[in-house]
Amino acid sequence: MNAIDEDDALIAAALKGSAYAWEKLVRRYEGRIYNLGLRLTGNSSDAMDLMQEVFLGVYRNLHRFRGDAKFSSWIFRIAHNKAVDMNRRKRLMTVSSWGDDGDSVDVLDTVPGESQQEPERQLNALQGNELVMAMLARLPLSQRLIVELKIFQGLTFEEIAGLQDISENTAKTRFYSALRKLKVQLEEDNVLS
């Protein structure tokens, strides 16, 4: 039985009330969703919140899953939407720690000061996952999502365009912009270090 068939079997069993099937289904995807959350939010607590919201959404809508798409695509669509919702809620409550949603640059971000210099200094000391999270944290959410979907989830630009309801060219442009921005950051950090 391949992964897709196994997903379908687990979904069917979970819909009939099998707690074991539900748990197995969650275990198959929780790692990928949690790591996605870490990269998008930059911290474990928000990543857990996002993961729980995603699986709650999956649970509530499992009966609507028709099986004409892959379950993995469906769950990442939910994760994408939940991440956007979560970012919106956070922006309403506090000054965004997730960066801007969109390609426009926040006016405050252009003002030099300690808040800008501090992350750069920290970036030099970071390694591995923390470095990646710190790099991604400085991108707007729309670019961060494209980087996530393209690099970490391996989606094509066509799939990303469909998921985000944008044109394929916009998706390509955003990805290229994001990568360039990250490249510039790394160059600056290398110069500073």
């Binding site: 929780e30 990269r39 993961m51 470095l131 990568l179 990250l182 790394l186």
Partner: peptide, 13 residues
């Protein structure tokens, strides 16, 4: 830069 990002180590839940 992409390689740097792809160096992400999967963290346990």
């Amino acid at each position: 830069t992409r390689d740097q990002l792809e160096g992400w180590q999967e963290q346990s839940v």
